[in-house]
């Protein structure tokens, strides 16, 4: 039984990580090695000229090349990654904060027509977001928000807000009102009670919500491509834009950039996963 479990896990892990491994291998190849007819995936020290070989000589040149401005692009990779980080982080923070406050309101106060409001909030996600790309583009042109970080931060915040409100409402509904009532009896204002009691209790929920918001903002491509073709491009749009370039796709650089692009999300998720596990097992495991 144990053997079976482990073999299934190992096979699945290999399948799931193969693309990542391949990307890692690609990132340390030379460009020749990435476009040869025979897959070259065995790193060796000595160079051979045989075209049929499966070996390649590893190099970190692709990582160094990330600092260079690729032909056809306006900035180097790092500047696009900075855009992604700024836009992803700000929009995530904004949608989690707004979502938490909004969910608290829906959860604790008698909002007239609360059910309808919540349905409306959810209904904003019924339509594929890209269906509104043209109206948004025209609006942003008028407002001068195209090609700016602010534009995408606003857009991603709004898109993620409905998810954030619904997720956070679930988490906050689970927190008994008695905690806030106790805090108010103990002399705290509603706001103090929210900060000191609800926010710590809802931290797990906020972390989960943040992961979802960050991933969706981080990977968004359609709007980034359309609205920000003139500037403040995020990494997904940057990579896509390299296609059909005069020099062709710089595969090793794309792989290296891709690795660096995935890393923050993986790190963040692992960080939050620990927190999540702690939140969930806290009650059952006695220290």
């Amino acid at each position: 039984m144990k053997f079976l479990r482990w073999s299934v896990l190992i096979v699945y892990t290999l399948l799931a990580t193969l693309p990542l491994l391949w990307m890692a291998v690609t990132s340390i190849k030379g460009r020749e090695d990435t476009i040869s007819q025979h897959a070259r995936f065995i790193p060796t020290a000595d160079a051979s000229t045989d075209a049929q070989r499966h070996t390649f000589v590893p190099t970190t040149a692709s990582f160094a090349a990330l600092a260079e401005v690729h032909s056809g692009a306006r900035h180097n990779f790092w500047s696009y990654l900075t855009n992604s980080v700024v836009i992803g982080a700000l929009s995530t923070v904004a949608s989690v904060l707004l979502g938490t406050l909004c969910a608290y309101g829906f959860s604790r106060f008698p909002v007239p027509g609360a059910k309808d409001w919540l349905f409306f909030v959810l209904s904003t996600r019924f339509m594929p977001p890209l269906a509104v790309v043209m109206p948004v583009l025209m609006m942003y042109r008028q407002l001068g928000l195209t090609g700016t970080q602010t534009g995408l931060v606003l857009l991603y915040t709004v898109f993620n807000l409905s998810l954030s409100i619904w997720l956070m409402k679930g988490f906050i509904d689970e927190i008994p009102r008695a905690y806030e009532e106790a805090a108010q009896i103990d002399g705290y204002s509603r706001w103090d009670a929210f900060i000191k009691i609800i926010v710590p209790k809802a931290r797990t929920g906020m972390a989960v919500t943040a992961v979802f918001c960050l991933i969706s903002a981080w990977n968004e491509y359609g709007f980034a491509m359309t609205l920000n073709s003139s500037g403040a491009i995020t990494v997904p749009a940057y990579f896509a834009g390299l296609q059909g370039n005069i020099d062709g796709m710089p595969w090793p650089q794309v792989a290296a950039g891709g690795l660096l692009f995935v890393a923050p999300i993986v790190a963040f998720t692992i960080l939050v996963r620990r927190h999540l596990l702690r939140g969930m097992t806290f009650g059952t495991i006695k220290q």
């Binding site: 905690y179 009532e181 710590p200 209790k201």
Partner: peptide, 20 residues
């Protein structure tokens, strides 16, 4: 008035201790 302006102590039926 709200609870904090009344100067009362309240013991809840189900304790309502702050779990964190």
């Amino acid at each position: 008035l709200g609870p904090r302006e009344r100067d009362v102590g309240f013991v809840f039926q189900f304790y309502a201790l702050y779990p964190h």
